[in-house]
């Protein structure tokens, strides 16, 4: 597609830097559409799944099976007034949703969507992903602090404590995969799973990754930051209209991108027989998303101290053990093979 665009522009005598720039901007718009459409779809799926678990119908009026509900919601949110309460820290309050959305958006630049379908072939892709996913924490702290609201502050602080804690097992669970693949480039990691998905070699890491990513996404059973019964809406209590929409968009965009990362590093990414790579990719990613939803709507919330205990006293030692175990296994593997022969 890049080639086609460049040739078309060459006909209009646009070459060099500007042609490249236009190509990148076209990709940016496509990516934005991809994210927004998928987020709307995921929100709709979530509401339907939730309704299914609670034996309700869920949104079913707008469009077939209510599939256009999220579109209508988006239109509603954009036409709502943005309220600035008089005590807020104006700049911090204004910037928080923007930073939250941008950090969610930039994660998609390094993720492979199919064979050769990756925007930026970054050789430190995984590190980039991890680094940018943790900027979300800053925006949440900004939102919690800037709102000058007790619920927001409590929610924000809790979110930060939870997210930075669970980021460690999330990172450590990836190391087994990095050691096996020998690369941080996400495409290389996918290609290393040609014969065997890493979930077979790293089942423990997969489970740790799923638990930690649920906490990272602030979803039940780890949804303490947004525990409605005690904190109203957590860090975005004061936000309304489009600013709230950015938080909402970022939340589901993060869900989607973490599902993509999970598929990429554990489930063989876009690899699969017979069908084109993007079909496998879609099937796997939505499978992981449904797993997250299944967990969210079946398990009750756990207490703050138990959540922290689970992380620091269980997941982190376990994931460190997993790294050491993987290292020993890789080093011992040639000898075991010789012994078997």
């Amino acid at each position: 597609m890049t080639k086609f665009l460049l040739e078309t522009m060459a006909n209009f005598a646009i070459t060099g830097f500007f042609a490249d720039l236009i190509v990148v901007l076209v990709y940016f718009v496509l990516l934005l559409l991809f994210i927004i459409i998928n987020v709307m779809l995921v929100v709709w799926v979530e509401r339907r799944v939730c309704a299914f678990y609670q034996e309700r119908l869920g949104p079913n009026r707008v469009g077939p099976f209510g599939i256009l509900q999220s579109v209508v919601d988006a239109v509603k949110l954009i036409s709502k007034e943005i309220i600035y309460p008089k005590n807020v820290d104006k700049w911090v309050y204004f910037l928080a949703p923007i930073i939250c959305f941008i950090s969610a958006l930039l994660l998609y630049t390094v993720l492979p969507f199919g064979k050769g379908l990756v925007l930026v072939k970054l050789n430190v892709g995984l590190l980039f992903f991890v680094a940018f996913s943790s900027t979300t924490t800053i925006s949440i702290l900004m939102a919690g602090w800037g709102s000058n609201n007790k619920y927001s502050l409590l929610g924000g602080m809790r979110t930060v404590a939870q997210m930075i804690s669970y980021e460690i097992p999330l990172l450590l669970s990836m190391f087994g995969v990095i050691m096996l693949a020998g690369s941080l480039n996400l495409q290389d990691i996918v290609n290393a799973q040609e014969h065997r998905w890493f979930i077979n070699l790293q089942p423990l890491a997969f489970i740790i990754f799923i638990i930690a990513s649920i906490a990272e996404l602030n979803r039940a059973p780890f949804d303490l930051p947004e525990a409605e019964q005690e904190l109203v809406a957590g860090y975005h209590t004061e936000y309304s209209g489009m600013q709230f929409a950015f938080f909402y968009l970022a939340e589901y965009a993060n869900l989607f991108s973490l599902s993509i990362l999970c598929t990429t590093i554990f489930l063989g990414g876009y690899l699969g027989p017979f069908f084109p790579s993007w079909i496998w990719f879609t099937v796997k990613v939505y499978g992981v998303i449904l797993l997250y939803m299944w967990i969210r709507w079946t398990l009750p919330r756990i207490r703050m101290d138990k959540m922290m205990k689970l992380n620091w006293k269980f997941l982190i030692p376990l994931s460190l053990l997993n790294i050491v175990g993987t290292g020993v296994a890789i080093k011992a593997w040639p000898y075991i093979q010789q012994l078997v022969r």
Binding site: L21, L25, L31, I102, L106, F246
Partner: peptide, 12 residues
């Protein structure tokens, strides 16, 4: 990535 960052700011 820089262009995407600027694009994101512009979009918001």
């Amino acid at each position: 990535i820089g262009i995407f960052l600027l694009g994101g700011i512009a979009f918001t």
